[in-house]
Nucleic acid binder design. Structure first.
Lengths: 167, 167
DNA sequence: GATATATAGTTGAGGTTTATAACTATTTGG
DNA sequence: CCAAATAGTTATAAACCTCAACTATATATC
């Protein structure tokens, strides 16, 4: 579609010679949402590569770590801790249970709730995964010094959990 | 399901009194992917609120900014710049065109490609959006000082574009 | 202790994204 | 003129998120 005479709505600009390579220096580069998304994309990609062998997704890893740290955590606590909603927790725990990594135990005191525990297999795996994820973080942030990496974590934590003065 | 006698696979642990409130101090808190996701969630939420009135999504905003900065950018350059794939660019540009914010202009030199331009309306809107997004960034990161915010951007840029030593 | 309300977990439908591959039109090089 | 490459488009399917409804159990109120 050529810009016609009666369409004066586009800016007069180079209509032929315009093409660009990769682009930067825009205000975009100063938007936190953009920078966070781009950085996350990269970090997740590395994580994915590291976890491929074990077929573990980010949310599964997070769940395993929380369950390990708090054996018997209920699904609602897990939901709250990971900031995801209850239906997702169901799928998450199902997937872990099906693979023999965790199991639900109905709570005797309040039989509505389930405590979630790691199986021996789950514990063995989570140990391996923690080390793998540590390495993948390092790989994804080779450009950062150890100090910068810690600083970054501290700043991010200040954003998502401003209460607990993370430093 | 109670842990039965012949099922020795779960760790011996408190089976009754286990419940937790919100949880922290885990190794999770040291994983970049986790911190990035949580922070991004919060920043995007603020962005969403700020853009609701104009019904603009993050990718649409990014596209508008790039098109403003590089009038006549082709769809393939846009894809490369924003690190999204060509089919998504089609939808993106369609949505902008339908709303009268941008338009495709077939390139005379290479009639396979389109240059994308903002309409007057698009330019007016993007100016407003840039200011809104700036404010939403500030709102989402109240816990950070201006120096910390700049530091954060610098660190994130180092991750996703380690080449251009962003500082 | 019967009834109402609340909570833990689950299920399922609907809508959105995302990735992939196939397709058209056009250009470029032999 | 033919083969291969490129820009954009379309279609399809897979994954995901949200929301509302549902079951079972617990707590509060009369």
């Amino acid at each position: 579609m050529q810009p016609s005479d009666n369409d004066t709505s586009i800016r007069q600009a180079s209509l032929e010679e315009v093409d660009t390579g990769p682009v930067d220096g825009l205000i975009l580069e100063e938007r936190l949402g953009y920078a966070l998304r781009r950085a996350q994309l990269k970090v997740f990609k590395h994580f994915d590569d590291a976890m491929r062998e074990h077929d573990i997704r980010p949310a599964q890893f997070s769940s395993l770590v929380v369950i390990e740290g708090y054996p018997g955590v209920t699904q609602s606590s897990l939901a709250q801790t990971l900031a995801i909603d209850p239906p997702r927790v169901v799928n998450l725990v199902n997937s872990l249970e099906e693979r023999g990594l965790a199991m639900r135990v109905r709570c005797k005191r309040d039989r509505r709730s389930h405590g979630i525990f790691l199986t021996k297999q789950g514990e063995a795996l989570v140990d391996k995964l923690k080390e793998l994820s540590r390495q993948s973080d390092l790989a994804a942030t080779q450009a950062l010094s150890e100090i910068e990496r810690r600083q970054l974590l501290m700043l991010l934590r200040k954003i998502y959990a401003p209460a607990d003065n993370a430093d």
